[in-house]
Design a protein around this nucleic acid. Structure first.
Length: 564
DNA sequence: AAGTTATGGCTCC
DNA sequence: TGGAGCCCCTAACT
Protein backbone atom coordinates (compact mmCIF):
# COMPACT_ATOMS: atom_id res chain seq x y z
CA UNK A 1 0.00 0.00 0.00
CA UNK A 2 1.58 3.27 -1.03
CA UNK A 3 2.16 5.53 1.88
CA UNK A 4 0.25 8.75 1.91
CA UNK A 5 1.82 12.02 2.52
CA UNK A 6 0.77 13.85 5.58
CA UNK A 7 -2.11 16.23 5.18
CA UNK A 8 -0.57 19.57 4.35
CA UNK A 9 -3.09 21.67 6.13
CA UNK A 10 -1.98 21.68 9.66
CA UNK A 11 1.76 21.86 9.25
CA UNK A 12 1.09 25.02 7.30
CA UNK A 13 -0.75 26.53 10.19
CA UNK A 14 2.00 25.45 12.46
CA UNK A 15 4.68 27.02 10.38
CA UNK A 16 2.92 30.35 10.29
CA UNK A 17 2.47 30.39 14.02
CA UNK A 18 5.96 29.30 14.33
CA UNK A 19 7.27 32.27 12.48
CA UNK A 20 5.19 34.61 14.56
CA UNK A 21 6.27 33.28 17.84
CA UNK A 22 9.85 33.19 16.75
CA UNK A 23 9.78 36.84 15.98
CA UNK A 24 8.34 37.84 19.24
CA UNK A 25 10.51 35.59 21.25
CA UNK A 26 13.96 35.68 19.86
CA UNK A 27 14.49 38.96 18.12
CA UNK A 28 16.76 41.60 19.44
CA UNK A 29 15.60 44.44 21.58
CA UNK A 30 15.01 46.91 18.86
CA UNK A 31 12.57 44.71 17.14
CA UNK A 32 11.01 43.67 20.34
CA UNK A 33 10.21 47.26 21.07
CA UNK A 34 8.55 47.55 17.75
CA UNK A 35 6.47 44.53 18.37
CA UNK A 36 5.46 45.74 21.77
CA UNK A 37 4.29 48.92 20.21
CA UNK A 38 2.10 47.01 17.86
CA UNK A 39 0.68 45.00 20.65
CA UNK A 40 -0.03 48.09 22.61
CA UNK A 41 -1.86 49.53 19.68
CA UNK A 42 -4.15 46.58 19.49
CA UNK A 43 -4.83 46.68 23.14
CA UNK A 44 -5.52 50.36 23.13
CA UNK A 45 -7.94 50.19 20.29
CA UNK A 46 -10.10 47.73 22.12
CA UNK A 47 -9.74 49.52 25.39
CA UNK A 48 -10.73 52.78 23.86
CA UNK A 49 -13.71 51.20 22.19
CA UNK A 50 -14.84 49.75 25.43
CA UNK A 51 -14.47 52.88 27.42
CA UNK A 52 -15.21 56.23 25.90
CA UNK A 53 -15.37 56.37 22.20
CA UNK A 54 -16.00 60.09 22.30
CA UNK A 55 -12.64 60.95 23.77
CA UNK A 56 -10.70 58.58 21.65
CA UNK A 57 -8.94 61.20 19.57
CA UNK A 58 -7.82 63.05 22.62
CA UNK A 59 -6.59 59.84 24.21
CA UNK A 60 -4.59 58.84 21.24
CA UNK A 61 -1.74 61.06 22.29
CA UNK A 62 -1.70 59.69 25.81
CA UNK A 63 -1.46 56.17 24.63
CA UNK A 64 1.97 55.21 25.75
CA UNK A 65 1.67 55.70 29.52
CA UNK A 66 -1.72 54.05 29.66
CA UNK A 67 -0.85 51.02 27.65
CA UNK A 68 2.16 49.92 29.60
CA UNK A 69 -0.12 48.36 32.16
CA UNK A 70 -2.08 46.65 29.43
CA UNK A 71 0.89 44.80 28.03
CA UNK A 72 0.48 41.12 27.48
CA UNK A 73 1.43 39.14 30.49
CA UNK A 74 2.60 35.58 30.23
CA UNK A 75 0.76 33.27 32.59
CA UNK A 76 3.71 30.93 32.68
CA UNK A 77 6.66 33.18 33.49
CA UNK A 78 4.62 36.25 34.47
CA UNK A 79 6.79 38.24 32.13
CA UNK A 80 5.39 40.79 29.72
CA UNK A 81 5.50 41.18 25.99
CA UNK A 82 4.37 37.69 25.20
CA UNK A 83 1.66 35.24 26.15
CA UNK A 84 1.71 31.50 26.50
CA UNK A 85 -1.30 29.30 25.95
CA UNK A 86 -3.66 28.19 23.28
CA UNK A 87 -4.25 30.42 20.32
CA UNK A 88 -7.13 28.54 18.86
CA UNK A 89 -5.97 24.96 18.64
CA UNK A 90 -2.29 25.82 18.63
CA UNK A 91 -0.39 26.08 21.84
CA UNK A 92 2.13 28.89 22.03
CA UNK A 93 4.96 28.17 24.41
CA UNK A 94 6.45 30.63 26.79
CA UNK A 95 9.74 31.57 25.11
CA UNK A 96 11.41 31.95 28.47
CA UNK A 97 11.08 28.24 29.21
CA UNK A 98 13.04 25.42 27.70
CA UNK A 99 11.41 23.67 24.79
CA UNK A 100 8.46 21.70 26.07
CA UNK A 101 9.21 18.90 23.66
CA UNK A 102 12.94 18.27 23.78
CA UNK A 103 13.62 20.15 27.04
CA UNK A 104 16.47 22.12 25.57
CA UNK A 105 16.64 25.89 26.08
CA UNK A 106 16.83 28.41 23.29
CA UNK A 107 13.73 27.57 21.32
CA UNK A 108 10.09 26.67 21.77
CA UNK A 109 8.17 23.58 20.76
CA UNK A 110 7.13 25.30 17.56
CA UNK A 111 10.64 25.69 16.32
CA UNK A 112 11.97 22.54 17.90
CA UNK A 113 13.90 20.49 15.37
CA UNK A 114 12.18 17.41 16.71
CA UNK A 115 8.73 18.72 15.98
CA UNK A 116 6.73 17.69 12.92
CA UNK A 117 9.62 15.45 12.31
CA UNK A 118 9.47 12.76 9.75
CA UNK A 119 12.61 11.82 11.49
CA UNK A 120 12.33 12.52 15.17
CA UNK A 121 15.49 13.68 16.76
CA UNK A 122 17.72 10.70 17.03
CA UNK A 123 20.94 10.50 18.89
CA UNK A 124 23.01 7.90 17.08
CA UNK A 125 24.72 5.08 18.80
CA UNK A 126 28.32 4.95 19.75
CA UNK A 127 29.05 1.41 18.82
CA UNK A 128 31.60 0.18 21.21
CA UNK A 129 31.79 -3.53 21.38
CA UNK A 130 32.47 -4.23 24.94
CA UNK A 131 31.04 -7.25 26.59
CA UNK A 132 28.68 -6.63 29.41
CA UNK A 133 28.33 -8.95 32.33
CA UNK A 134 24.98 -9.74 30.89
CA UNK A 135 26.67 -11.07 27.82
CA UNK A 136 28.69 -13.54 29.81
CA UNK A 137 25.75 -14.74 31.80
CA UNK A 138 23.12 -15.07 29.16
CA UNK A 139 24.59 -14.90 25.74
CA UNK A 140 25.27 -18.56 25.25
CA UNK A 141 21.94 -19.66 26.61
CA UNK A 142 19.96 -17.09 24.79
CA UNK A 143 21.73 -17.38 21.53
CA UNK A 144 21.35 -21.12 21.50
CA UNK A 145 17.63 -20.55 21.65
CA UNK A 146 17.53 -18.36 18.63
CA UNK A 147 20.24 -19.13 16.11
CA UNK A 148 17.91 -19.33 13.17
CA UNK A 149 15.67 -16.60 14.41
CA UNK A 150 18.48 -14.18 14.89
CA UNK A 151 19.85 -14.52 11.41
CA UNK A 152 16.40 -14.19 9.96
CA UNK A 153 15.86 -11.18 12.10
CA UNK A 154 19.03 -9.61 10.88
CA UNK A 155 17.84 -10.12 7.35
CA UNK A 156 14.42 -8.72 8.06
CA UNK A 157 15.87 -5.75 9.79
CA UNK A 158 17.73 -4.92 6.65
CA UNK A 159 14.75 -5.54 4.42
CA UNK A 160 11.91 -4.10 6.36
CA UNK A 161 8.43 -5.36 5.85
CA UNK A 162 5.75 -2.95 4.78
CA UNK A 163 4.21 -1.85 8.01
CA UNK A 164 0.47 -2.17 8.30
CA UNK A 165 -0.87 0.65 10.39
CA UNK A 166 -4.31 0.40 11.96
CA UNK A 167 -5.27 3.99 11.33
CA UNK A 168 -9.05 4.16 11.41
CA UNK A 169 -11.37 3.75 14.30
CA UNK A 170 -13.43 0.64 13.75
CA UNK A 171 -15.38 0.50 16.95
CA UNK A 172 -15.37 2.01 20.37
CA UNK A 173 -16.91 2.02 23.79
CA UNK A 174 -17.36 5.55 24.95
CA UNK A 175 -17.33 6.19 28.68
CA UNK A 176 -16.90 2.50 29.25
CA UNK A 177 -14.98 2.95 32.45
CA UNK A 178 -15.95 5.25 35.25
CA UNK A 179 -12.40 6.54 35.58
CA UNK A 180 -9.51 6.79 33.16
CA UNK A 181 -8.16 3.64 31.56
CA UNK A 182 -4.83 2.53 32.99
CA UNK A 183 -4.03 -0.68 31.16
CA UNK A 184 -5.10 -2.83 28.23
CA UNK A 185 -4.44 -6.45 27.43
CA UNK A 186 -5.53 -8.59 24.49
CA UNK A 187 -6.68 -12.07 25.29
CA UNK A 188 -3.90 -14.53 24.45
CA UNK A 189 -6.07 -16.91 22.45
CA UNK A 190 -9.43 -15.29 21.77
CA UNK A 191 -8.79 -12.70 19.10
CA UNK A 192 -11.77 -10.50 19.86
CA UNK A 193 -11.39 -10.03 23.56
CA UNK A 194 -9.83 -6.94 25.06
CA UNK A 195 -9.30 -6.46 28.76
CA UNK A 196 -9.04 -3.05 30.29
CA UNK A 197 -8.26 -1.77 33.74
CA UNK A 198 -9.05 1.61 35.20
CA UNK A 199 -8.09 3.99 37.93
CA UNK A 200 -10.88 2.80 40.14
CA UNK A 201 -9.61 -0.75 39.97
CA UNK A 202 -12.30 -2.05 37.69
CA UNK A 203 -11.67 -4.70 35.09
CA UNK A 204 -13.44 -4.51 31.74
CA UNK A 205 -13.84 -7.40 29.35
CA UNK A 206 -15.02 -6.50 25.89
CA UNK A 207 -15.70 -8.55 22.81
CA UNK A 208 -15.11 -5.94 20.15
CA UNK A 209 -16.62 -8.09 17.41
CA UNK A 210 -19.87 -8.47 19.24
CA UNK A 211 -19.54 -4.99 20.51
CA UNK A 212 -22.34 -5.11 23.03
CA UNK A 213 -20.77 -7.99 24.84
CA UNK A 214 -18.93 -6.24 27.54
CA UNK A 215 -18.62 -6.61 31.24
CA UNK A 216 -17.09 -4.61 34.01
CA UNK A 217 -16.06 -6.31 37.22
CA UNK A 218 -16.15 -3.70 39.91
CA UNK A 219 -15.10 -5.36 43.08
CA UNK A 220 -11.72 -6.81 42.34
CA UNK A 221 -9.63 -3.86 43.43
CA UNK A 222 -10.15 -0.76 45.48
CA UNK A 223 -8.05 1.57 43.38
CA UNK A 224 -5.81 1.81 40.34
CA UNK A 225 -5.33 -1.42 38.42
CA UNK A 226 -1.80 -0.75 37.28
CA UNK A 227 -0.97 -3.85 35.28
CA UNK A 228 -2.63 -7.01 34.02
CA UNK A 229 -1.08 -10.22 32.81
CA UNK A 230 -2.52 -13.48 31.59
CA UNK A 231 -1.42 -16.76 32.99
CA UNK A 232 -0.05 -18.64 30.00
CA UNK A 233 -1.11 -21.90 31.56
CA UNK A 234 -4.69 -20.80 31.90
CA UNK A 235 -6.02 -18.12 29.64
CA UNK A 236 -9.31 -18.08 31.48
CA UNK A 237 -7.78 -16.15 34.32
CA UNK A 238 -5.94 -12.87 34.51
CA UNK A 239 -3.64 -11.44 37.15
CA UNK A 240 -3.83 -7.86 38.29
CA UNK A 241 -1.55 -5.59 40.33
CA UNK A 242 -3.21 -2.68 42.04
CA UNK A 243 -2.46 0.39 44.09
CA UNK A 244 -4.66 -1.15 46.76
CA UNK A 245 -1.65 -3.33 47.51
CA UNK A 246 -3.16 -6.59 46.32
CA UNK A 247 -2.56 -9.03 43.51
CA UNK A 248 -5.70 -10.53 42.07
CA UNK A 249 -6.33 -13.61 40.01
CA UNK A 250 -9.67 -13.28 38.29
CA UNK A 251 -11.77 -15.81 36.43
CA UNK A 252 -12.94 -14.04 33.31
CA UNK A 253 -16.15 -16.01 33.06
CA UNK A 254 -17.38 -15.55 36.57
CA UNK A 255 -15.52 -12.48 37.73
CA UNK A 256 -14.62 -14.37 40.85
CA UNK A 257 -11.30 -13.18 42.09
CA UNK A 258 -8.70 -14.49 44.45
CA UNK A 259 -6.41 -12.17 46.29
CA UNK A 260 -2.96 -13.71 46.09
CA UNK A 261 -1.21 -11.11 48.13
CA UNK A 262 -2.18 -8.19 50.29
CA UNK A 263 0.52 -5.78 51.36
CA UNK A 264 -1.85 -3.73 53.48
CA UNK A 265 -3.41 -6.31 55.78
CA UNK A 266 -3.94 -3.72 58.49
CA UNK A 267 -5.71 -1.27 56.27
CA UNK A 268 -5.00 2.41 55.94
CA UNK A 269 -2.36 3.60 58.36
CA UNK A 270 -1.45 6.71 56.43
CA UNK A 271 0.39 7.37 53.19
CA UNK A 272 3.82 6.51 54.53
CA UNK A 273 2.95 2.88 55.11
CA UNK A 274 0.38 2.21 52.43
CA UNK A 275 1.88 -0.10 49.82
CA UNK A 276 0.94 -0.05 46.19
CA UNK A 277 1.69 -2.57 43.47
CA UNK A 278 2.77 -1.49 40.02
CA UNK A 279 5.02 -3.57 37.78
CA UNK A 280 4.00 -7.14 37.12
CA UNK A 281 4.98 -10.02 34.90
CA UNK A 282 4.66 -13.78 34.80
CA UNK A 283 7.70 -16.01 34.77
CA UNK A 284 6.31 -19.01 32.96
CA UNK A 285 9.20 -21.35 33.54
CA UNK A 286 9.19 -20.83 37.24
CA UNK A 287 5.45 -20.60 37.52
CA UNK A 288 5.66 -17.41 39.49
CA UNK A 289 4.07 -14.01 39.24
CA UNK A 290 6.49 -11.14 39.84
CA UNK A 291 5.07 -7.97 41.30
CA UNK A 292 6.80 -4.77 42.36
CA UNK A 293 5.71 -2.12 44.85
CA UNK A 294 6.15 1.59 45.46
CA UNK A 295 8.88 1.10 48.05
CA UNK A 296 11.41 -0.41 45.67
CA UNK A 297 10.67 -4.07 46.37
CA UNK A 298 9.96 -7.09 44.23
CA UNK A 299 7.53 -9.74 45.43
CA UNK A 300 6.89 -13.23 44.11
CA UNK A 301 3.82 -15.42 44.18
CA UNK A 302 3.74 -19.07 43.23
CA UNK A 303 0.94 -19.47 40.73
CA UNK A 304 0.15 -23.07 41.57
CA UNK A 305 -0.11 -22.73 45.31
CA UNK A 306 -1.04 -19.05 45.25
CA UNK A 307 1.47 -18.58 48.04
CA UNK A 308 3.91 -15.75 48.44
CA UNK A 309 7.47 -16.94 47.90
CA UNK A 310 10.34 -15.73 50.03
CA UNK A 311 11.00 -12.23 51.21
CA UNK A 312 10.60 -9.08 49.13
CA UNK A 313 13.81 -8.05 47.37
CA UNK A 314 14.94 -4.47 47.03
CA UNK A 315 15.37 -3.93 43.29
CA UNK A 316 15.25 -0.16 43.04
CA UNK A 317 16.11 2.75 45.28
CA UNK A 318 14.49 2.27 48.63
CA UNK A 319 11.19 4.08 48.79
CA UNK A 320 10.90 4.49 45.03
CA UNK A 321 8.16 3.17 42.83
CA UNK A 322 8.92 0.20 40.61
CA UNK A 323 6.50 0.72 37.75
CA UNK A 324 7.55 -1.96 35.31
CA UNK A 325 8.69 -5.58 35.21
CA UNK A 326 9.35 -7.67 32.14
CA UNK A 327 10.68 -11.18 31.73
CA UNK A 328 12.72 -11.83 28.62
CA UNK A 329 10.53 -13.76 26.18
CA UNK A 330 13.26 -16.25 25.34
CA UNK A 331 15.08 -16.43 28.63
CA UNK A 332 12.60 -15.86 31.44
CA UNK A 333 15.35 -15.80 34.02
CA UNK A 334 16.43 -12.53 32.55
CA UNK A 335 14.27 -9.89 34.16
CA UNK A 336 14.04 -6.19 33.57
CA UNK A 337 12.62 -3.66 35.98
CA UNK A 338 12.17 0.07 35.78
CA UNK A 339 11.00 2.80 38.05
CA UNK A 340 11.11 6.17 39.64
CA UNK A 341 14.77 6.05 40.53
CA UNK A 342 15.48 6.86 36.87
CA UNK A 343 16.83 3.41 36.11
CA UNK A 344 15.87 0.36 34.16
CA UNK A 345 17.72 -2.63 35.58
CA UNK A 346 18.50 -6.11 34.32
CA UNK A 347 18.46 -9.04 36.70
CA UNK A 348 19.29 -12.71 36.74
CA UNK A 349 16.40 -14.47 38.45
CA UNK A 350 18.76 -17.18 39.65
CA UNK A 351 20.66 -14.79 41.81
CA UNK A 352 18.19 -12.17 42.68
CA UNK A 353 19.15 -10.03 45.61
CA UNK A 354 19.47 -6.37 46.43
CA UNK A 355 22.31 -4.78 44.52
CA UNK A 356 22.95 -7.77 42.28
CA UNK A 357 21.57 -6.33 39.07
CA UNK A 358 23.45 -7.32 35.94
CA UNK A 359 23.11 -3.92 34.45
CA UNK A 360 21.63 -0.51 35.21
CA UNK A 361 20.31 1.58 32.36
CA UNK A 362 20.43 5.22 33.40
CA UNK A 363 17.74 7.65 32.37
CA UNK A 364 17.28 11.34 33.00
CA UNK A 365 13.92 10.98 34.65
CA UNK A 366 11.33 8.44 35.70
CA UNK A 367 11.17 5.39 33.43
CA UNK A 368 7.54 4.61 32.64
CA UNK A 369 8.24 1.31 30.94
CA UNK A 370 11.05 -0.98 29.85
CA UNK A 371 10.39 -3.89 27.52
CA UNK A 372 12.46 -6.52 25.80
CA UNK A 373 11.62 -6.93 22.15
CA UNK A 374 8.80 -9.42 21.73
CA UNK A 375 10.34 -12.00 19.41
CA UNK A 376 14.08 -12.19 19.88
CA UNK A 377 14.11 -10.57 23.28
CA UNK A 378 17.39 -8.99 22.36
CA UNK A 379 16.39 -5.35 22.07
CA UNK A 380 15.27 -3.02 24.81
CA UNK A 381 12.74 -0.24 24.53
CA UNK A 382 12.14 2.26 27.32
CA UNK A 383 9.83 5.24 27.75
CA UNK A 384 11.13 7.97 30.01
CA UNK A 385 9.47 11.12 31.27
CA UNK A 386 12.23 13.20 29.77
CA UNK A 387 10.32 12.95 26.48
CA UNK A 388 12.58 10.33 25.02
CA UNK A 389 12.09 6.79 23.85
CA UNK A 390 15.33 4.88 24.22
CA UNK A 391 16.38 1.84 22.26
CA UNK A 392 19.18 -0.59 22.93
CA UNK A 393 19.72 -2.66 19.80
CA UNK A 394 21.27 -5.62 21.54
CA UNK A 395 21.39 -6.73 25.11
CA UNK A 396 24.73 -8.32 24.26
CA UNK A 397 26.27 -5.09 23.08
CA UNK A 398 27.43 -2.17 25.08
CA UNK A 399 24.62 -1.19 27.39
CA UNK A 400 26.33 1.88 28.81
CA UNK A 401 24.29 4.13 26.61
CA UNK A 402 21.27 3.56 24.40
CA UNK A 403 21.67 2.89 20.71
CA UNK A 404 19.16 5.65 20.01
CA UNK A 405 17.21 8.29 21.84
CA UNK A 406 14.07 9.35 20.05
CA UNK A 407 12.51 12.61 21.15
CA UNK A 408 8.78 12.21 21.51
CA UNK A 409 6.18 14.14 23.49
CA UNK A 410 4.95 12.02 26.34
CA UNK A 411 6.07 13.98 29.39
CA UNK A 412 2.73 13.56 30.98
CA UNK A 413 0.48 15.66 33.05
CA UNK A 414 0.03 14.16 36.47
CA UNK A 415 -3.60 13.34 35.84
CA UNK A 416 -2.93 11.01 32.98
CA UNK A 417 -1.95 7.38 32.83
CA UNK A 418 1.79 7.26 32.10
CA UNK A 419 2.65 6.80 28.43
CA UNK A 420 4.40 3.61 27.41
CA UNK A 421 5.89 2.82 24.04
CA UNK A 422 4.66 -0.65 23.03
CA UNK A 423 6.14 -3.04 20.51
CA UNK A 424 4.17 -4.46 17.64
CA UNK A 425 4.43 -8.12 18.63
CA UNK A 426 3.92 -9.18 15.01
CA UNK A 427 6.71 -7.19 13.44
CA UNK A 428 9.55 -9.59 12.57
CA UNK A 429 12.01 -6.74 12.33
CA UNK A 430 11.15 -5.61 15.84
CA UNK A 431 11.14 -2.01 14.86
CA UNK A 432 7.51 -0.91 14.88
CA UNK A 433 6.41 0.75 18.08
CA UNK A 434 3.28 2.63 19.10
CA UNK A 435 2.95 5.41 21.64
CA UNK A 436 0.38 8.11 22.32
CA UNK A 437 1.41 11.74 22.05
CA UNK A 438 0.84 14.26 24.80
CA UNK A 439 1.35 17.47 22.89
CA UNK A 440 -1.53 18.34 20.60
CA UNK A 441 -1.54 19.21 16.95
CA UNK A 442 -3.73 21.76 15.32
CA UNK A 443 -5.73 19.60 13.02
CA UNK A 444 -8.11 21.67 10.95
CA UNK A 445 -8.73 23.91 13.89
CA UNK A 446 -9.07 21.14 16.45
CA UNK A 447 -6.40 20.29 18.98
CA UNK A 448 -5.98 16.54 18.68
CA UNK A 449 -3.53 14.19 20.30
CA UNK A 450 -2.42 11.56 17.80
CA UNK A 451 -1.16 8.08 18.47
CA UNK A 452 2.25 7.71 16.88
CA UNK A 453 3.81 4.76 15.10
CA UNK A 454 7.57 4.98 15.18
CA UNK A 455 10.28 2.98 13.47
CA UNK A 456 12.68 2.67 16.35
CA UNK A 457 15.52 1.53 14.12
CA UNK A 458 15.60 4.98 12.51
CA UNK A 459 13.49 7.17 14.77
CA UNK A 460 11.20 7.87 11.87
CA UNK A 461 7.60 8.77 12.55
CA UNK A 462 5.80 6.29 10.30
CA UNK A 463 2.26 7.36 11.02
CA UNK A 464 0.27 9.48 13.36
CA UNK A 465 -3.24 8.25 13.73
CA UNK A 466 -6.01 10.40 15.05
CA UNK A 467 -9.70 10.86 14.83
CA UNK A 468 -11.64 14.09 15.11
CA UNK A 469 -13.90 12.40 17.62
CA UNK A 470 -11.10 11.53 19.97
CA UNK A 471 -10.37 14.82 21.62
CA UNK A 472 -8.76 13.35 24.70
CA UNK A 473 -5.18 12.22 25.14
CA UNK A 474 -4.50 8.53 24.45
CA UNK A 475 -1.72 7.34 26.72
CA UNK A 476 -2.64 3.65 26.72
CA UNK A 477 -2.11 1.68 23.54
CA UNK A 478 -1.66 -1.95 22.67
CA UNK A 479 -1.10 -3.68 19.35
CA UNK A 480 -2.90 -6.96 18.78
CA UNK A 481 -0.61 -10.01 18.94
CA UNK A 482 -2.02 -11.58 15.77
CA UNK A 483 -4.28 -9.14 13.92
CA UNK A 484 -3.72 -5.70 12.45
CA UNK A 485 -5.51 -4.02 15.29
CA UNK A 486 -4.63 -1.26 17.67
CA UNK A 487 -6.45 -0.77 20.95
CA UNK A 488 -6.39 2.65 22.55
CA UNK A 489 -7.46 3.71 25.99
CA UNK A 490 -8.24 7.41 26.10
CA UNK A 491 -9.72 8.87 29.24
CA UNK A 492 -12.64 6.55 30.08
CA UNK A 493 -13.11 5.26 26.55
CA UNK A 494 -11.65 2.48 24.47
CA UNK A 495 -11.12 2.48 20.72
CA UNK A 496 -10.29 -0.25 18.24
CA UNK A 497 -8.43 0.80 15.13
CA UNK A 498 -7.95 -1.15 11.91
CA UNK A 499 -6.11 -0.37 8.70
CA UNK A 500 -7.88 1.57 5.99
CA UNK A 501 -7.72 -1.56 3.85
CA UNK A 502 -10.03 -3.29 6.20
CA UNK A 503 -12.76 -0.79 5.47
CA UNK A 504 -12.22 -0.93 1.74
CA UNK A 505 -12.16 -4.68 1.38
CA UNK A 506 -14.67 -5.61 4.05
CA UNK A 507 -18.36 -5.61 3.27
CA UNK A 508 -19.07 -2.24 1.71
CA UNK A 509 -19.44 0.65 4.07
CA UNK A 510 -19.19 -1.46 7.11
CA UNK A 511 -20.98 0.07 10.02
CA UNK A 512 -18.86 1.64 12.58
CA UNK A 513 -19.73 0.46 15.94
CA UNK A 514 -19.85 2.85 18.77
CA UNK A 515 -21.23 1.96 22.13
CA UNK A 516 -21.89 4.76 24.51
CA UNK A 517 -21.96 3.76 28.12
CA UNK A 518 -23.65 5.26 31.12
CA UNK A 519 -22.54 8.03 33.37
CA UNK A 520 -23.04 11.70 32.86
CA UNK A 521 -22.13 12.43 29.31
CA UNK A 522 -19.20 14.71 29.00
CA UNK A 523 -19.96 17.83 27.09
CA UNK A 524 -17.40 17.27 24.44
CA UNK A 525 -18.24 13.70 23.86
CA UNK A 526 -21.91 14.32 23.80
CA UNK A 527 -21.64 16.61 20.88
CA UNK A 528 -18.93 14.72 19.13
CA UNK A 529 -20.16 11.22 19.37
CA UNK A 530 -23.86 11.17 19.86
CA UNK A 531 -26.34 11.47 17.10
CA UNK A 532 -28.46 12.29 20.05
CA UNK A 533 -28.30 11.11 23.54
CA UNK A 534 -31.92 10.10 23.77
CA UNK A 535 -32.02 6.44 23.11
CA UNK A 536 -29.03 5.69 25.20
CA UNK A 537 -31.43 5.46 28.09
CA UNK A 538 -33.55 2.57 26.90
CA UNK A 539 -30.52 0.50 26.33
CA UNK A 540 -28.94 1.71 29.43
CA UNK A 541 -25.46 0.80 28.43
CA UNK A 542 -25.41 0.56 24.73
CA UNK A 543 -25.98 2.50 21.65
CA UNK A 544 -25.09 1.83 18.12
CA UNK A 545 -24.70 4.35 15.42
CA UNK A 546 -27.12 3.60 12.66
CA UNK A 547 -26.12 5.40 9.58
CA UNK A 548 -22.92 5.58 7.73
CA UNK A 549 -23.54 9.27 7.47
CA UNK A 550 -23.42 9.82 11.12
CA UNK A 551 -20.00 8.31 11.17
CA UNK A 552 -18.65 10.42 8.47
CA UNK A 553 -15.74 11.44 10.59
CA UNK A 554 -14.71 7.85 10.84
CA UNK A 555 -15.01 7.02 7.22
CA UNK A 556 -12.43 9.20 5.65
CA UNK A 557 -9.89 11.91 5.66
CA UNK A 558 -9.03 12.55 9.20
CA UNK A 559 -7.70 9.31 10.36
CA UNK A 560 -4.17 9.00 9.41
CA UNK A 561 -1.23 10.40 7.75
CA UNK A 562 1.61 8.29 6.68
CA UNK A 563 5.09 9.33 6.12
CA UNK A 564 7.44 7.44 4.10
C1' DA B 1 -20.05 28.15 33.33
C1' DA B 2 -16.00 29.34 36.47
C1' DG B 3 -14.17 26.78 39.99
C1' DT B 4 -12.79 22.32 42.01
C1' DT B 5 -10.60 18.12 42.33
C1' DA B 6 -7.91 13.97 41.89
C1' DT B 7 -3.20 13.65 41.69
C1' DG B 8 2.75 12.74 40.59
C1' DG B 9 7.16 14.33 40.40
C1' DC B 10 10.60 17.77 40.89
C1' DT B 11 13.06 21.45 43.22
C1' DC B 12 14.36 23.85 46.94
C1' DC B 13 15.44 24.42 51.62
C1' DT C 1 15.69 12.88 54.07
C1' DG C 2 11.42 15.11 54.22
C1' DG C 3 8.00 18.40 53.44
C1' DA C 4 6.13 22.55 51.16
C1' DG C 5 5.20 24.60 47.08
C1' DC C 6 5.12 24.59 42.31
C1' DC C 7 3.59 23.05 37.76
C1' DC C 8 2.78 24.25 30.50
C1' DC C 9 -1.62 21.49 26.34
C1' DT C 10 -6.40 16.95 31.86
C1' DA C 11 -11.09 15.74 32.20
C1' DA C 12 -15.07 15.43 34.42
C1' DC C 13 -17.69 17.04 37.75
C1' DT C 14 -20.23 20.93 40.58
Amino acid sequence: MPPETRARTFPKVVIMRDTDSEQSSSDDEQEEEHILEQEEDEQVVSKVKDEEASTSTKRKNERVPITISLKKKCKVCKGTGHEAGFKGATYIDCPMKPCFLCKMPGHTTMSCPHKVATEHGVVPAHRKHSNSSLGYVFERQLKSHIPAVSSILLYLTLIKPEFVIPDQVNCAVIRYHSRRVTCLEFHPTNNNILLSGDKKGQLGIWDFEKIHEKTVYENIHGCILNNMKFNPANDGTVYGASSDGTVSCTDLETGISLSLMNLNPDGWQGPTTWKMLYGMDINTERGVALIADNFGYLHMVDMRSNQVIGEPILVHKKGSKVVGLHCNPLQPDLLMSCGNDHFARLWDMRQLKAGSSLCNLAHKRVVNSAYFSPQSGSKILTTCQDNRIRVWDSIFGNLDSPSREIVHSHDFNRHLTPFRAEWDPKDPSESLVVIGRYISENYNGAALHPVDFIDISTGQLLAEVMDPNITTISPVNKIHPRDDILATGSSRSIFIWRPKDHFETAEPMEENKIVICGGTPGKKQKSKFGESDDDSDNDKFTKKSKKAKSKKPYSKSASSSYKK
